[in-house]
């Protein structure tokens, strides 16, 4: 690596998280989900029959671009993350990190919040050829939708076929959600993960609350 490249790259990406004691606000901070959880507790709500919603806030979100077929690309990515590179419309997860196929040359990685800079640094060092890594942690949040009627809520929200035979565990689909969009991943039998954009979070939160109303909604951590 030439001196110039090194100097340039130190400016390209940075540790974006503060080291000190700084208040951090997820996109749904203002919705005060903890107070809604308290309502669940007070009411002793039976969540089994309805819909449960939780925000998994402040995760590291990294967009990884590269040519899947380029020599060494997938191997390097796998080596750097310890994850196989998911194929079309699928995901690979080790419990802490999840890598999702977004398009033929695009993947979305999520990981614990504090790791964004380290992972970005690691990937930039590891990935060969024409690649890009972009930290988009501040632009996204994750919603977890579960319960017996979670699928009905999805059917109200997207025209994508969310039946078992079309949407097995681990599948990832970017599609419409209300009049916005989401990256949807099937996480278990009754559970779905939605990655949504920060600026649409409030709209989608209202949308999902409204869509869930007839089934009974509870909010969880």
């Amino acid at each position: 690596m030439s001196d110039r490249q090194e100097r340039d790259q130190t400016r390209v990406w940075m540790q974006q998280l503060p080291s000190g004691d700084v208040r951090v606000e997820s996109p749904l901070y203002h919705a005060d989900l903890p107070s809604m959880m308290a309502i669940n507790d007070d009411a002793g709500a039976d969540t089994a029959g309805g819909v449960a919603l939780a925000e998994l806030p402040l995760q590291a979100h990294l967009v990884i671009r590269g040519r899947a077929e380029a020599p060494g690309f997938q191997e390097s990515l796998t080596q750097a993350l310890g994850l196989q590179v998911p194929t079309r419309l699928s995901s690979v997860s080790d419990g802490s990190q999840t890598l999702r196929w977004i398009g033929p040359d695009e993947w979305l990685l999520t990981a614990p919040a504090s790791q964004a800079f380290d992972i970005e640094t690691k990937l930039r060092a590891a990935l060969p050829g024409h690649v890009a890594v972009v930290d988009v942690s501040g632009g996204n949040t994750i919603l977890l939708l579960s319960g017996l009627h979670a699928r009905s809520v999805l059917k109200k929200s997207t025209s994508y076929d969310v039946s078992d035979r079309n949407f097995p565990l681990g599948k990832v689909v970017t599609t419409t959600m209300g009049k916005s969009q989401a990256v949807i991943r099937r996480v278990d039998e009754l559970g779905w993960e939605l990655i949504i954009r920060r600026s649409f979070a409030d709209y989608l939160w209202l949308w999902l609350q409204d869509a869930s109303a007839e089934y009974g909604l509870s909010v969880h951590e």
């Binding site: 079309r88 033929p104 025209s159 994508y160 599609t175 419409t176």
Partner: peptide, 17 residues
Amino acid sequence: MLYIHCPYCEEHRSEEE
């Protein structure tokens, strides 16, 4: 509403996408 096969996703998707 059309149902369009995306040759990259290798699936049919609704026109609104």
